[in-house]
């Protein structure tokens, strides 16, 4: 059975000079903290920055001997991350604040993002037309187009998955789009909602 050292013990060891202890703490809470920050920001690069700033603050506080929340390491770290996220929004004025007034109702801002019945029908038709046209493409072009557009894969990932060079994958994508445009024109299909 694997022996798990408690966070509080690792914190003590780190304060007493064990650099290994902070490595264990960072790796132990990496996914949880990154997920927490990402859920607030929705941006991978920013998440990375806030994660780094959070642990820099943790390290400084521990080294200065200013940590006094023994046994509650993760909530403390999360709180630091949360405050840094708030700071980020403040700095960028990106935290929208709405107050209800006589002329403004908060519910007017809270739209239902679902399409109405007519737009849904049009969207279904477009999806179906597009799917039929994609099926007309050569297999290799279909494959690249589906990976790029539907699975959001990078050309490097497509190259790794299909065993062709990045340039070949780019070329296939280019021809897939050219051929799709030809099919759209040839069939007089309107692909707008």
């Amino acid at each position: 059975m694997e022996l798990r050292i408690e966070d509080s013990q690792l914190v003590k060891e780190y304060i007493n000079g064990s650099e290994k202890a902070i490595e264990v703490l960072i790796n132990r809470h990496n996914a949880r903290l990154t997920g927490f920050i990402y859920s607030k920001l929705g941006d991978r690069e920013l998440t990375e920055d806030i994660f780094q700033d959070t642990f820099m603050k943790v390290i400084r506080t521990l080294k200065r001997g200013a940590y006094n929340e023994e046994g509650k390491f993760l909530p403390w770290v999360m709180r630091i991350a949360h405050n840094l996220v708030i700071d980020h929004f403040r700095k960028n004025n990106r935290m929208p604040m709405y107050g209800e007034t006589e002329s403004f109702n908060i519910f007017s801002m809270m739209g239902d993002e679902r399409l109405n019945a007519e737009k849904q029908l049009i969207k279904d038709q477009i999806d179906s037309d597009l799917a039929n046209m994609i099926r007309e493409l050569p297999q290799d072009q279909q494959e690249v187009l589906e990976m790029r557009m539907y699975k959001d894969m990078s050309f490097k990932e497509i190259s790794d998955n299909t065993g062709v060079s990045i340039n070949t994958a780019l070329g296939r994508m280019r021809y897939a789009l050219i051929n799709l445009r030809k099919l759209v024109e040839a069939n007089n299909i309107v692909l707008t909602n």
């Binding site: 490595e23 960072i26 790796n27 990496n30 996914a31 903290l33 990154t34 997920g35 990402y38 991978r44 998440t47 990375e48 994660f51 780094q52």
Partner: peptide, 8 residues
């Protein structure tokens, strides 16, 4: 989602 090894 995890922080990159370079960040660690």
């Amino acid at each position: 989602v995890k922080a990159k090894p370079e960040t660690i």
